[in-house]
Design a protein around this nucleic acid. Structure first.
Lengths: 222, 222
DNA sequence: TTCTTCATGTAATTAGTTACATGATTGA
DNA sequence: TCAATCATGTAACTAATTACATGAAGAA
């Protein structure tokens, strides 16, 4: 009885069930390959959450046999569809970022320059690997081989975000590497570059005032 | 005894202690205002983790009195500095993104167009709010009023990343809003735009091959 | 036929969050 | 002097992860 209320994770699963019925293993796969990029959860969670959905009447489980072994396939109920719609009605929470590599740059003065450079190299590799994935998925859709083509209108929005995020990570790491390269051996003695701050302030200002700017450009300033 | 090993959260605290001794409350503040942007944790964690550091000999606690009430101030030990340096030596894990708002766009076909638009508006507001914060911090440093100016070389790197991330969120939400605006009332019937995918593929390819490109430009292709 | 990988889960543990409790300080 | 807010923590709970266990299917 892990009763309590439904979490975002529950709704993430429910959203998948709204596409089609899945076995738990398939759900886990899906989580691993696609959903996990925006809502990462461990495999084992995927075996628990659907039970909660069933307890709430939002999904139903059907037992199948594969060899001697039972498997559970979950489908959404109409109550489940209503719950999903209700969830979509309130705006969600903003992004939460957990970024260990960046943390290590933040504290870089306690290590060596080489440490920081290696860390940045790992970031670039990460960005490349993720981009390669995105690329393969995008190409599959261009070849009309992508799964659930009827969801493409939504998918093309989210995959653009992810692609741009990976590009941001890669570009930033590349930019930062060029700076860290010029640091002395002990990063604690590195000198700041005020023009970097100035440019950062300019960019922050642009985003902070973005809506106002756009409104003015469209001529509907108050 | 929540013994076990040190986590990234432990090292995040240890990194703060390397700057100066802090009371637990100050640590929590710091976590809330700055570190939390890249390593978000609940306040109460911040009362637990330092005890673990002490148990490992990486920090030491000193009791002070404020009125009748005791307060604990933690400082790093030299063993703690060595542990921090060792931690910095291995590259960290890549970014982990949890993004409920994007999840709701991913599943938008189960709600209304208005739901999706409201969700995107919330995203823009989030980006604006965070950018405003970044802006204030950046300006403080330009005025030489920022805390720990000797750490500016590191800070200017990480705050550039965050600023660009907030810009990405804001720009994407703005772009997506323009597309979602053209959707029919039921997002399930929205038509995909193949040129969007084509552009995404182009961008993903650029990042996936970025290092190779840069190597070629620098004339050190293998 | 045996080894490996795919598939289907459960159990134990822990990391983390929410909620609460209460003393000190400030200012209206 | 009373309310509000700052400061300092603890306790209860739960979400999530890691590790384990084992059957089925396919390859060598």
């Amino acid at each position: 009885m892990s009763s309590s209320a439904l979490t975002t994770t529950s709704y993430a699963i429910l959203g998948l069930l709204a596409i089609k019925p899945w076995s738990t293993y398939e759900l886990a796969q899906q989580m691993d390959r696609s959903l996990g990029r925006i809502w990462p959860r461990a495999q084992s969670k995927l075996y628990e959450e659907p039970k909660k959905l069933v307890a709430f009447g939002l999904a139903c489980a059907s037992e199948e046999q594969v060899g001697q072994r039972p498997r559970t396939v979950y489908s959404i109920t109409s109550k489940g569809r209503r719950a999903l719609a209700a969830w979509l009605h309130d705006p969600g929470a903003g992004p939460v970022l957990e970024f260990e590599q960046l943390l290590k740059i933040f504290f870089a003065e306690n290590g060596t320059r080489a440490d920081a450079m290696a860390n940045l190299a790992a970031m670039r590799e990460w960005a490349q690997a993720r981009s390669t994935e995105s690329l393969a998925i995008g190409r599959a859709y261009l070849d009309e081989r992508g799964p659930f083509p009827h969801r493409l209108a939504q998918l093309e929005l989210t995959s653009r975000f992810l692609t741009d995020f990976y590009a941001l990570v890669g570009d930033w790491a590349h930019w930062a590497s060029q700076i860290v390269e010029t640091w002395p051996d002990e990063p604690g003695r590195a000198q700041p570059d005020l023009t970097v701050i100035e440019e950062t302030v300019r960019r922050a200002a642009a985003t902070a005032e973005a809506d106002a700017q756009r409104a003015i450009q469209h001529g509907d300033a108050s």
